[in-house]
Amino acid sequence: MQKKLIGRTGIAVATIAMGAVASMGAAPAALASTPAQAPTALAAKNTCPTWSVTGKAVNFRSGPGTQYRSIGLLHRWDDSGTKVSSSGSWIKIKLDHKSKTGLKKGTTGWVSKQYLEQCVYMQLD
C-alpha cells in the first residue's frame, strides 16, 4: 500500500514539475513580445504610508535632527506610524497606536530614516 502511494505521489510531482517547466519556457517569449510593459510594472512607486521602527530603541524627536529634544523612545517592530512629512533623511510620523514606552496614539515626531522601514504593498493575484 505504501509503495502505491509513493508511486502516485511521484507521478503527481513529476506532472506538476513538467507543467512548471513548460510555463517557464513560455514566459520569456511573452515578455519579449511586450517589452514596454515589464519595466513599468517593476518601477511602480511604493505608496504605503506606514513606516515601522527597525532600531532597538530609537529617539522620537521634536524636529528633524539630533539637535532637537527627544519626546521618547520607539522600539523595533513594536512601534509604527503614518508618514506625515519628511526633511532630508528624517521622516515625521504620526503614531498608529500607543507606543511601547507609553507615547499616545496620534503623537507626531521625527525619526531618522536609517531606523525606519516603509511597508510594501503586495499584489497577491
Rank of each mutant, 00 (worst) to 15 (best):
M1Y: 15
Q2R: 15
Q2N: 15
Q2G: 15
K3I: 05
K4H: 11
K4R: 13
L5H: 10
G7D: 14
R8A: 10
T9Q: 09
G10A: 11
G10C: 04
A14G: 05
A14L: 14
A17N: 03
A17Q: 07
M18V: 15
M18L: 15
M18N: 04
G19M: 15
G19H: 06
A20W: 13
A20C: 14
V21P: 01
S23E: 11
S23K: 08
M24W: 12
A26F: 11
A26I: 10
A27Q: 06
A27G: 02
A30W: 11
A30Q: 12
L31V: 01
A32L: 09
S33L: 11
P35H: 05
A36H: 06
Q37L: 13
A38D: 07
A38R: 13
P39K: 01
P39A: 00
T40A: 14
T40Q: 13
T40S: 12
A41L: 11
L42Q: 09
A43S: 09
A43W: 00
A43H: 03
A44C: 01
K45S: 04
K45M: 05
K45R: 06
N46R: 03
T47S: 11
P49D: 05
T50Y: 10
W51S: 00
W51E: 00
W51N: 02
S52G: 02
V53Q: 04
A57E: 06
V58Y: 05
V58K: 09
N59E: 10
F60T: 02
R61G: 04
R61C: 04
S62G: 07
P64C: 04
P64Y: 07
P64E: 08
G65I: 02
Q67W: 09
Q67S: 13
Q67H: 10
Y68M: 03
Y68C: 00
Y68A: 07
Y68P: 04
R69A: 14
I71Q: 07
G72Y: 10
L73R: 13
L73P: 03
L74Q: 01
L74R: 02
L74P: 00
R76P: 00
W77Y: 15
W77A: 08
D78F: 13
D78L: 14
D79P: 10
S80P: 01
S80L: 05
K83G: 03
K83T: 08
V84W: 13
S87C: 08
S89W: 10
S89C: 00
I91A: 06
K92E: 15
K92R: 15
I93F: 08
K94L: 06
L95Q: 03
D96C: 07
D96P: 00
H97E: 12
H97W: 11
H97D: 10
K98W: 05
K98F: 00
K98Q: 14
K100E: 04
K100P: 00
G102C: 02
L103M: 11
L103W: 05
L103D: 02
K104V: 01
G106C: 06
T107K: 08
T107M: 01
T108N: 08
T108V: 11
G109W: 05
W110V: 08
V111T: 03
S112G: 14
L116H: 07
L116Y: 11
L116V: 05
E117M: 07
E117C: 00
Q118M: 02
Q118S: 03
Q118Y: 04
C119W: 10
C119K: 15
Y121V: 04
M122L: 15
Q123P: 00
Q123F: 15
L124I: 14
D125R: 14
